[in-house]
Design a protein around this nucleic acid. Structure first.
Length: 540
RNA sequence: GGCCCCAUCGUCUAGUCAGGUCCAGGACACCGGGUUUUCAACCCGGCAACACCGGUUCAAAUCCGGUUGGGGCUACCA
């Protein structure tokens, strides 16, 4: 049976690149009727938090990626947090030491740094100088007494070159002389990623490892470890990396970077005010502005929202909050470095599963094209069932704290319906805002007022529209349409001449859902009130 | 610097492994037009690529070598 896994290090939100890795592993498991498991790689005491692990799980679930084994769902191979598996790793490390396949080291970080620099200067890679004789327990005690750090290093067998047989890249050869002994146990007693990963993959019966190309160079180390421990070897597939417009890997730092750039271009910034919004000190903010030292993500998000700066989505949660559907994100992600081999692009989850094939992973890196994602999202909003869309919309409204969050299902469903063709849930929300604000709190867009109300006879028409609407017995989209079309015909003008002033009066902008529905939903009373307000405010 | 990976329209890609059916197909973006009560959506049309050099072959996007370019790794992070 195929067993795949996703093994994130929980340092924060789930990154979109991580989501893609998870997706491919999940897809393979589902396609083959195998198992997909989730393992939390939290061996770095300094960087990992339990809250982050929960967040990663929430993000995976939002995408629809459920694990068969792992945290919260359990399974026979637990625990699924590496921090709770230390005794397991210790056992294997001891085994390697006993067999003379690993040895203790007592180097200080600065000493290692020096060695690296020297190697660099000599135009070669650092190959750790393995001692003739391995230190014994007595040496360890002595080193500890002297306060030296104690690590364990794997003794790389030097006989043969290592060949990685990769599903995506074929045979990749590594010269034995190029591979250094590497640390498998840190001075805090925890295993390094390489070691924990190899042990767990074996113990959990992982058969296929799909991971980013950045791990290709680690694979010879992993294989050597597997051989030394007598482990089986999973099938490896190293996927291409997703890069951003700016060149390198899509990185979490892009959001602070984008905000920093935007702020730099703003003429005057009220430091105290902005720091308050971000809930950071003035100093922290100054450090950010002047030196690019990023405050916490929450502060970045708060400032961006306040300043109206759109930050590039990087974490899964960012896409959620920008109004993307998980179906669209998953579909788009799947097509980054994979394709079904025919001309299908817009696909549902079940289609992706049945079409998935490891052999069709592409080799070249791909750029994350947000425009195409939006196109996918538009398509998925159109395709998804009404029930699901409503559920997504409600989740979205809640997440962004929209005024519409409290509205009943019928209203929300209607808002979705009249906004057919929307690109994101954010578009629908934005176009619906006018319904949820007080009549007196409408923000009139200056350009819209100038162009529509103050030019020609905008205000005159608006007053007339108000008078006629007031006399209408029955208010439905159809009767409103009849009325407005009649007026346009009467005056020998296009419908726009009649509709636009009304639109600006009730929404404050020239952008809204179809006007007949907008008036109907807002209600005649509020509509008339807003017309009156506008007439008063802008002249007549 | 060293090691490793990659290279088709602006972007994601099909085609490359089994060379001819490819003066290279689709999608997004873009441009032009249409529809239209705004935005969006929608419809029609258009632009646009085999990185370069050499080799193998009757024939190369496809095989081989090199060059260039891009990316990754180079941690007691994962």
């Amino acid at each position: 049976m195929v067993v795949t896994r996703f093994a994130p290090s929980p340092t924060g939100y789930l990154h979109i690149g991580g989501a893609r890795t998870a997706l491919f592993n999940w897809l393979l498991a589902r396609k083959t009727g195998g198992k997909f498991l989730l393992r939390i790689e939290d061996t770095d005491q300094k960087r990992n938090t339990p809250a982050a692990a929960r967040q990663v799980m929430e993000d995976l679930r939002w995408l629809g990626i459920e694990w068969d084994e792992g945290p919260e769902v359990g399974g026979p191979n637990g625990p699924y947090f590496q921090s709770q598996r230390k005794d397991l790793y210790d056992k294997y490390i001891k085994q390697l030491i006993d067999e003379n396949k690993a040895y203790y080291c007592f180097d200080a970080p600065e000493e290692l740094q020096q060695m690296r620099e020297k190697a660099q200067a000599e135009k070669r890679n650092l190959i750790y100088p393995r001692p003739e004789e391995f230190p014994d327990e007595g040496d360890v005690k002595k080193a500890r007494a002297q306060g030296r750090p104690v690590t364990v290093r794997f003794a790389m067998p030097a006989e043969a070159d290592i060949v990685v047989n990769d599903v995506v890249r074929g045979e990749v050869k590594f010269a034995a002389s190029e591979i250094s002994d590497f640390i498998i146990q840190k001075s805090d007693g925890f295993p390094t990623y390489h070691f924990a990963c190899v042990v767990d993959d074996e113990l959990m019966g992982v058969t296929h490892v799909i991971r980013g190309q950045e791990h290709l160079m680690n694979t010879p180390n992993h294989q050597a470890l597997q051989d030394a421990l007598g482990f089986r070897r999973p099938i490896y597939a190293h996927m291409s990396v997703t890069v951003s417009e700016s060149g390198g890997k899509l990185s979490k730092r892009e959001r602070p970077k984008a905000l920093h750039k935007a702020i730099k271009e703003m003429p005057d910034i009220d430091i105290a005010k902005l720091a308050g919004i971000a809930k950071i000190s003035d100093n922290e903010l100054k450090h950010f502005i002047n030196r690019g030292v990023s405050p916490p993500m929450a502060a970045i998000d708060a400032m961006a929202e306040y300043l109206g700066v759109h930050l590039p989505e990087i974490n899964v949660v960012d896409f959620f909050k920008s109004g993307y559907l998980p179906e669209a994100v998953v579909n788009f992600l799947a097509l980054l470095g994979w394709n079904p081999g025919d001309e299908r692009e817009i696909m549902q989850l079940d289609e992706l599963i049945s079409a998935f094939d490891l052999g069709r992973l592409t080799k070249a890196n791909s750029l994350f094209d947000r425009q195409k994602l939006i196109a996918f999202n538009t398509e998925h909003i159109r395709m998804v069932s009404d029930d699901k869309l409503l559920a997504h919309f409600k989740d979205y409204l809640k997440a962004v704290g929209s005024a519409a969050a409290g509205a009943d299902d019928a209203l929300l469903a209607r808002l979705i319906q009249i906004n057919a063709g929307a690109r994101t849930l954010a578009d629908i929300e934005k176009k619906s805002r006018f319904i949820f604000i007080d009549n007196d709190e409408i923000q009139y867009d200056e350009k819209a007022v100038k162009k529509v109300l103050l030019k020609h006879d905008g205000l005159t028409i608006l007053r007339l529209v108000g008078e006629r609407l007031a006399k209408l017995d029955e208010i439905t989209p159809a009767t409103i349409e009849e009325l407005l079309r009649g007026m346009a015909e009467e005056r020998q003008v296009g419908l726009g001449k009649v509709a636009q002033p009304l639109r600006v009066a009730i929404c404050g902008t020239t952008i809204s859902p179809p006007i007949f529905d907008s008036v109907d939903i807002l209600g005649i009373k509020d509509t008339l009130r807003r017309i009156e307000n506008a007439l008063k405010k802008f002249g007549i």
